[in-house]
Amino acid sequence: MPETSETLSLSSVVGDAIRRQIFAVQDFSLLSMRSVVNVFTPPYYWTDALEQMDLIGVGSLPIVIIIGFFIGAVLVLQTSAQFERFGETALTGDAVALALVRELGPTITAIVIAGRNASGMASELGSMVVTEQVDAMRALGTDPIRKLMTPRVIATVLVLPLLVAVADFVGLVGGFLVAYFTLQLGAVQFWTRAINALDFGDLVQGFVKPIVFGFIIATVGCYQGLRVRGGTQGVGRSTTQAVVISSVLVIVIDAFLSRLLLWSFSR
């Protein structure tokens, strides 16, 4: 008999865990939908959205510039040896441009913003939940999703493509400088090849991805913040989960999105 009860308890534990995950996905989906629907109906919190744009966009600019520059530089360092073997160092511009615009620019920038801002959103909103500030907002007749979440979603979705554009450009500059000093590639040769390597489909890929990633980062960050339970320890746990979940989702969805976009723009 003890075996039966152990089996039962194990199945109930697993069942509970699965049920909790399904409810979490349902809550997340509904919350994300509410945040989007709020964009189209008053009242609007444009000032809050602008504040968030400043916090996410301007605040992340230095780190995005540094990371973008060195990603471009290291890309040339790693690929130049291979191109030299075939005497095709001129292709460095093509490789850097394609890798940055299609893939590394959006993905690396999104992961940086997830680390910096999804955690910030989760900890800020989480602290508000545990100190009853979110309840106080509801008690004052204000919808916390509309006031807190929607401006963050709008801000991240609008600002991330701009940050990616900056990262792409700075990355190309970094790549060019390394190519100029190590491969003695001329500026005209590098930039002409880099620009010509990109077609319309690559640019679409480069700008659709950050829009999707921005939505994931903001919704996951806010969801993790608004569902905090268990005081300051809960805030810490949610902050970690916000970074982990949003980073993993960015990478996983990037794979599917790349396939979809490559298929859409294949000739």
Binding site: T131, E132, A136, M137, A139, L140, G141
Partner: peptide, 23 residues
């Protein structure tokens, strides 16, 4: 539903235990 409760709560005041001021 919550959207009606938001309007309803504009007619009452709630003082939370620790104040719950927006910090």
């Amino acid at each position: 539903p919550e959207h009606e409760l938001l309007d309803f709560r504009r007619h009452l005041g709630f003082v939370f235990q620790e104040g719950a001021l927006f910090d």
